[in-house]
Every structure is written in C-alpha cells, then in structure tokens.
C-alpha cells in the first residue's frame, strides 16, 4: 500500500466512475427516475474514518454486501440510509413500510443491490478484461460500523488502512436539487491492486 501514488488513486477514481456510471443507468431505468452519481472519491482511510463516511459507526443503514471473487477479490457495499430504504421499497413495490420491513420489501431491496452491484462490476470487468465474479448478495439493516467492519477483515490482516472507492448516487429532484439515495463502497483486497493496475497497463512497482 506504500507504493500507491496519487496517480494510482486517480486511476481507481476512473474505475469507480465507469462502474457507478453503469449502475446509475441501471438504477434510473429501474425506477424510471433521473438518477445521477457524483464523481467518486478515492481515499486511503483508517478504520476509524471509514465509518465516518456513512455518518458514524452507530448510524443505522440498509446495506447490501457482496464478496467479489476472481482475479481482483474485494468487498462491495451498497449503503442506503434507513429512511431512504423505506422510500426505495415504496418506489419498487408500492408498499409503505414505515413500521418494520416486509419480506417482500427486503427482498426487493436486496435485488436492487444485486442489480446495481452487478452492473457496476460488469462494467469494471469489461473495461479491465479481468475475471470478476460477485457472490450472491446479502442484505442487512444495522449499525454502519458493524456492517462495514465485515468488509475490512481481509484488509485488516495487512494493516489498519483501507483504500475506499466511494461513489454517491443521488436522485435529481428538480432543476437545482438533489436528494442523496445511497453510496457505493468498493474495498479491494490488498492482493488486488497488482493485478488491477497490471490489467490497466500501469506498474505498481515503478
């Protein structure tokens, strides 16, 4: 991780851009609403800081988690704030779930995560020509710290810092306004950087 230079982070940013762009298109088609995404931020963050990216360790979020297997293993999260999850379930199923979540609502939210992460990763795979296989997704609604720490396990064997590719997805509410819908987190395992940069023709050892 010490070998990562700022231009490497720029390359990761472009990767996030390609993936999230594809996911935003899929999302937009699914909800029949204009969905935009921000320019991704790529940061090297400590384990303490990572939960701050979603509003603190105790913030309740709905998270769809996938393990990425293949040539560039890692973890991926689609994090949606709790109130936004209720709205999304309503948009997807027409079901209002202010109190508790129905099985149908949770299932639709998990499928949403699956579709979006799938389109994100397939764009990545097309672009890099790498073999990337997402696992079956799993959804949970709980404290952000408890959820994100799960994606840090592989990374934590090497150090106390993670490279996070973070993209915000937001709904265009009117000409000037946006409402944040959720965040994508891509956390590549430490072993992934060498094959990833190699596939893009950049040497990590330079």
């Amino acid at each position: 991780m010490k070998r990562i230079q700022s231009y490497h982070l720029d390359i990761l940013k472009e990767i996030g851009n390609i993936g999230a762009g594809n996911a935003a298109t899929a999302f937009s088609a699914l909800l029949a609403k204009p969905i935009e995404m921000t320019v991704p931020s790529v940061r090297i963050v400590s384990f303490q800081e990572i939960t701050e990216l979603v509003g603190g360790a105790e913030e309740v979020v709905a998270a769809t988690f996938l393990r990425i297997e293949g040539e560039v293993p890692g973890s991926m999260f689609l994090i949606v704030p709790e109130d936004e999850a209720v709205q999304l379930i309503y948009d997807l199923t027409g079901e209002s779930s202010k109190i508790g979540y129905s099985e149908m609502g949770l299932s639709s939210l998990q499928e949403l995560g699956n579709i979006l992460a799938g389109s994100y990763l397939s764009a990545l795979s097309d672009f890099t020509n790498l073999n990337i296989q997402p696992s079956v997704p799993s959804l949970t609604i709980d404290m952000a710290g408890a959820i994100l720490s799960f994606g840090l396990l592989e990374i934590s064997r090497v150090g106390d810092f993670a490279i996070v590719i973070d993209t915000e997805i937001r709904e265009v509410t009117n000409e000037y306004g946006y409402a944040s819908t959720g965040q994508f987190f891509l956390l590549p395992d430490p072993d992934s950087f060498t094959p990833l940069f190699h596939a893009l023709g950049v040497d990590l050892h330079a």
Binding site: F47, Q48, E58, M143, A146, I147, S149
Partner: peptide, 23 residues
C-alpha cells in the same frame, strides 16, 4: 475505543465501543 483499538479507564469514566459486528 475504536475499531482494532484498546483503551483503559477508572471511575467515574466509562469505556465505550460502537458498531461491533463480527468483532
């Protein structure tokens, strides 16, 4: 106490860690 962190205290202080999942 943060993630992968350790701390100590004595009264009247309290010790707290948030967002324990598999940890």
């Amino acid at each position: 106490v943060g993630m992968a962190d350790m701390n100590d205290c004595s009264p009247p202080q309290l010790l707290r860690t948030s967002g324990l999942g598999s940890c």
